[in-house]
């Protein structure tokens, strides 16, 4: 049905988006590559020049990089495991017949809409604070010593905050997928004497597998970039205990004013994200046909 005229009209309608996105991608990528091979410090801009792989070796061997990479992986994996496992359990629970499913959904999805600095500061001050936080009160009530969450285990605490923010997303998507499951199939399995665990393992989980893949991939993309939560809770500390890759780049660029090193870090971050992206694209691309 597409005529020659509508084809060329379509091209004009698509091109603004394509051109803009191309510029948005190509110009920064080109610049970040360029600067990653240049010496450029904002406080001392006269001394500029090519430094080969100097920025990369600086960034990679600075001592902070290895830790930041490990922290990034722990943060991403920790949040993924918590949100997917709890998400599956909560989705199955909410999918059962119950009174007030609508309000329950609304309550569960709510944390997703809270802006990251708010979530992080509420948790930091009103929950994690060792002298007057709610966890301190809970520990006190149970007869334990209060625990300095952000001081003693900063990364775990940040994982808890971020998991709280993303659990609603995982739950909602898994619930949506579960609701499309054919009820007759479950019922037939029940009649044939399949135990609840068997029904979960052989029917529900395979049915949700696609949604689980999508949750993992999309969350990974966002989790690799977690920034605001770290900035307002620990600023990457104590020491570098909660410094992740994005935070390290931010530190190099806007605190140390070392554009070259930050650019080298940026290139590394882009490469890492692309490895994840390839898998995500495959999963979503399947749906297009």
């Amino acid at each position: 049905m597409a005529t020659q005229a509508s084809r060329s009209a379509a091209r004009y309608m698509i091109s603004p988006s394509v051109i803009m996105l191309f510029i948005w991608m190509a110009v920064p990528l080109g610049m970040v590559l360029y600067y990653s091979f240049r010496r450029y410090r904002l406080l001392n801009p006269e001394r500029a020049g090519w430094v080969g792989w100097g920025n990369y070796s600086n960034f990679v061997f600075s001592g902070d990089f290895g830790g930041a990479l490990v922290n990034t992986l722990i943060l991403v994996l920790g949040v993924l495991i918590i949100t997917v496992v709890l998400g599956i359990l909560i989705a199955i629970l909410i999918d059962q017949p119950l009174w007030g499913q609508g309000p329950v959904r609304i309550l569960v999805i709510s944390p997703f809409f809270i802006m990251p600095p708010v979530s992080a500061l509420v948790w930091k001050n009103m929950f994690f604070n060792p002298t007057n936080g709610l966890f301190a009160a809970l520990f006190d009530w149970l007869g334990f010593q209060p625990y300095d969450f952000l001081g003693q285990s900063p990364l775990t605490s940040i994982i808890m905050i971020v998991a709280w923010e993303w659990l609603p997303f995982a739950t909602l998507i898994l619930l949506t997928s579960l609701q499309s499951l054919d009820r007759d199939q479950l019922e037939a399995a029940e009649m044939d004497g399949a135990a609840p665990l068997a029904r979960f393992w052989y029917i529900m989980l395979p049915h949700m597998s696609r949604a689980i893949t999508v949750v993992i991939l999309i969350q990974t993309i966002f989790l690799l970039g977690i920034f605001g939560e770290i900035l307002v809770t620990t600023s990457g500390g104590p020491g570098t205990a909660s410094t992740t890759l994005p935070f390290l780049i931010f530190k190099k660029a806007l605190l140390d004013f070392d554009v070259g090193a930050a650019a080298a870090g940026g290139v590394i971050a882009v490469i890492l994200a692309n490895i994840v992206a390839i898998f995500l694209m495959k999963a979503i691309g399947k749906n297009l046909d």
Partner: peptide, 22 residues
């Protein structure tokens, strides 16, 4: 469409420096 989506995969921290300089 897939190419457009791929631009979304670019980590913000990766391009902080150029956007800041621009």
């Amino acid at each position: 469409l897939m190419w457009m989506l791929s631009t979304k995969m670019m980590p913000a921290a990766g391009v902080l420096v150029p956007i800041y300089l621009i």
